[in-house]
Computed example of a mutant assay.
Amino acid sequence: MRVCVLCAGVALSACTPAQPGAEFNDPYESTNRGIHEFNKGLDQALLRPAGQVTAAAPEIVTTPVANFADNVGLPGMIVNGILQGDIGGAATNTMRFVLNTTVGLGGLFDPAGGIGLNEDSTDFGETLAVWGAPEGAYVELPVLGPSTERDAVGQLVDIVIDPLARYGTAEQATAATTARVAGIAISRGRFSDTMDSVLYESADSYAQARLLYLQNRRFELGMTDQSNGIDPFADPFIDPFAEPFQ
């Protein structure tokens, strides 16, 4: 753990500083756009069809899979809650994990949600933000999609510190990975209209995806975006490149 945090600190020390007055800190835009086109092609070939299949499947099938995928992510969230000093969030996620893993048959069902123990979602990117690490430049990662330098480091550390991956059996790790992949496909199906609008109906899908990610992520972290030229209270699903209604 100590080594992971040290490596994260070294990586973040090299984060690209924002340009004064710039609306977005995106010095890698040319490379990002190339990766965006790759991700878009991957979505069209694999993820979008998979999402259409899951959207057509009955909820009695998809809901337990989505529940299981959410449950296997809780141990990592518990660790991040502790690292952030958010004892309440860590306790909620711990009780949720214990209840859903036992009474909920390994996480296939969500009895915790039924009594108001809802997931306190977090990750190491948020942990770094709590520790005061800068956001860094906007980046689009192959397969993983929109991110920032800080969140990219966070995603890597989340993989390394995940208790289930570190201490679980090989079978448990395989089941968790399979569930996460299935959960992504299910989410793609559930939000297909929004995703299709961004990727295939926007005048500039890269700029739209960038705007949505930064707005939503900064809102999740409780940040205000006026200094970056972004209104955190604006509707993130309005295409900024669309023609104004006459």
Rank of each mutant, 00 (worst) to 15 (best):
88 G>K: 15
88 G>V: 14
89 G>S: 12
89 G>E: 09
91 A>N: 08
91 A>L: 15
92 T>E: 00
92 T>G: 00
93 N>W: 12
93 N>K: 11
94 T>C: 07
96 R>H: 06
98 V>N: 03
99 L>P: 03
100 N>E: 10
101 T>M: 15
103 V>G: 07
104 G>M: 02
104 G>T: 02
107 G>M: 00
107 G>H: 01
108 L>K: 10
109 F>M: 09
115 I>H: 07
115 I>D: 08
115 I>T: 02
117 L>K: 03
117 L>S: 05
120 D>Q: 15
120 D>G: 08
125 G>Y: 01
125 G>Q: 03
126 E>M: 09
126 E>D: 14
128 L>C: 13
129 A>Y: 01
130 V>Q: 10
131 W>Q: 08
131 W>R: 09
131 W>I: 03
132 G>L: 11
133 A>D: 04
136 G>V: 02
137 A>R: 06
139 V>M: 08
140 E>F: 06
141 L>R: 06
141 L>I: 13
142 P>K: 10
143 V>A: 07
143 V>K: 10
144 L>P: 08
146 P>V: 06
146 P>K: 07
147 S>N: 09
148 T>I: 06
148 T>H: 05
148 T>V: 07
150 R>H: 05
150 R>L: 01
150 R>K: 12
150 R>F: 00
152 A>Q: 09
153 V>H: 03
155 Q>P: 00
155 Q>W: 00
158 D>Q: 04
158 D>E: 10
160 V>P: 01
161 I>L: 08
164 L>E: 10
164 L>T: 15
165 A>R: 12
167 Y>R: 15
168 G>K: 06
168 G>F: 05
169 T>Y: 06
170 A>T: 13
171 E>M: 14
172 Q>F: 04
172 Q>W: 01
175 A>Q: 15
176 A>W: 00
176 A>G: 03
179 A>H: 09
179 A>D: 11
180 R>I: 06
180 R>G: 03
181 V>I: 14
185 A>M: 09
185 A>K: 01
185 A>W: 02
185 A>N: 02
187 S>V: 13
189 G>R: 05
190 R>T: 11
192 S>H: 07
193 D>P: 02
195 M>V: 14
195 M>K: 13
196 D>H: 03
197 S>T: 13
198 V>S: 09
198 V>P: 06
198 V>E: 08
199 L>F: 06
199 L>N: 04
199 L>Q: 10
200 Y>F: 15
203 A>N: 08
205 S>T: 13
205 S>P: 12
206 Y>T: 13
206 Y>I: 14
